[in-house]
Write a protein that binds this DNA or RNA. Structure first.
Lengths: 197, 197
DNA sequence: ATACAAAAACTAGCACTGCTAGGTAAAATG
DNA sequence: CATTTTACCTAGCAGTGCTAGTTTTTGTAT
């Protein structure tokens, strides 16, 4: 039964094209430009076809977000692996996270700002988000006892810095100094806490 | 010519009612429910009236955001003033910020997530945002030399923690530990940096 | 008081959105 | 080749932000 497989392949291919189109349009014209009609035009099918692949528009955004989580995890792992020392590794992870967030703003938006509801029901999303989290945790772990807490806080600080800079709330010029401050805080958390306890 | 004044007063009152309605609907049903038709119904006028007060829907959201910036500044100033020691003051500011963000999610959304374009052209918004920033800066200043940088980073960390928790990315239970970690980082930044320099 | 001018508010409608029902063309099966 | 199933599209609904054109209300002057 090669026919069913061919059809399945074609469907999967079209689904990828939808997600790719959504991402491309969002990145070049913003998420407001990502309408069902626009995506239908991009893939050269009628609108209802999209609803045979995704339940609604949010599900398409969520699919883009899942792609983003995969890529973020890869980027962070590579950044952590390339460095020599523990401190360099942490700094590289921070810089890589920032570069990711600012170079793909629409993708980052899909991951952390837009839907925030459906995408966490899917198991795949959870695991991919976890992969990125683990990459950060690996870089953080040499400096602290309670890895989970420190990773969450480190991540939140990077996320907050990226968001406030992206929306023009804080000065764009001092980026590296702020990141250095966050990294230093993690390093200090490792050297201070044990001394006290 | 008391007539013109009366009319001006009535207009201002109606404008306040529009903003209040937008905020109330957003807080109880989410920003998606805040449509022009819905607000018109709430204030018992026709839709075009709203456009004699605001250029478009985003301007209404921005007006709500401005209210939020004023209230945030007040909340942070009170928190900083009530505490005794420098460290308590910093911790209280952090807790107050968090309480603000989580207790008025729709308001916080208007301030930091939704429009992010128009509202910073207005001078009023800038000054109110600055007021909140200054309140944080006052609590941070005893612990560092470069107040601006540290304040930006401290604020970003709080914002990131609030956002990630609000969207369910990090565990809700460990909130206080993460906040304590951020506060400790600021305190350490003050005790470490001078020793090195 | 009444006719008039000006201001204020409303009705109706446009172009767009997400989404869907119902009919049509294409393709696989006997 | 006929039939059934699958795939797909056209057309349309209800709702959105926003606006043109008209009507009502209000204040002014005779």
């Amino acid at each position: 039964m090669g026919i069913a497989e061919r059809k399945s392949r074609e469907r999967a291919g079209r689904e990828e094209r939808i997600v790719a189109a959504a991402r491309a349009v969002a990145e070049s014209e913003g998420w407001d430009a990502v309408t069902i009609r626009r995506l239908a035009k991009e893939i050269e099918y009628s609108q209802p076809i999209l609803y045979s692949h995704f339940a609604n528009r949010d599900a398409i955004v969520a699919a883009v977000a899942v792609e983003g989580f995969k890529e973020l995890a890869t980027v962070l792992r590579e950044a952590a692996g390339a460095a020599n020392g523990k401190r360099e590794s942490l700094m590289d992870v921070a810089m890589a996270y920032f570069a990711f967030a600012l170079s793909r703003p629409a993708l980052y938006e899909a991951m952390f700002i837009l839907p925030t509801q459906l995408q966490f029901a899917e198991a795949e999303t959870r695991s991919e988000l976890r992969a990125g989290f683990d990459a950060i945790a690996a870089a953080v772990s040499p400096f602290c006892a309670d890895v989970e807490i420190v990773t969450e806080t480190f991540w939140a600080a990077l996320h907050g810095l990226a968001e406030l800079e992206r929306s023009g709330r804080i000065r764009p010029g001092m980026r590296d100094k702020r990141i250095a401050l966050v990294v230093q805080a993690i390093v200090d958390a490792g050297s201070n806490a044990p001394m006290r306890g």
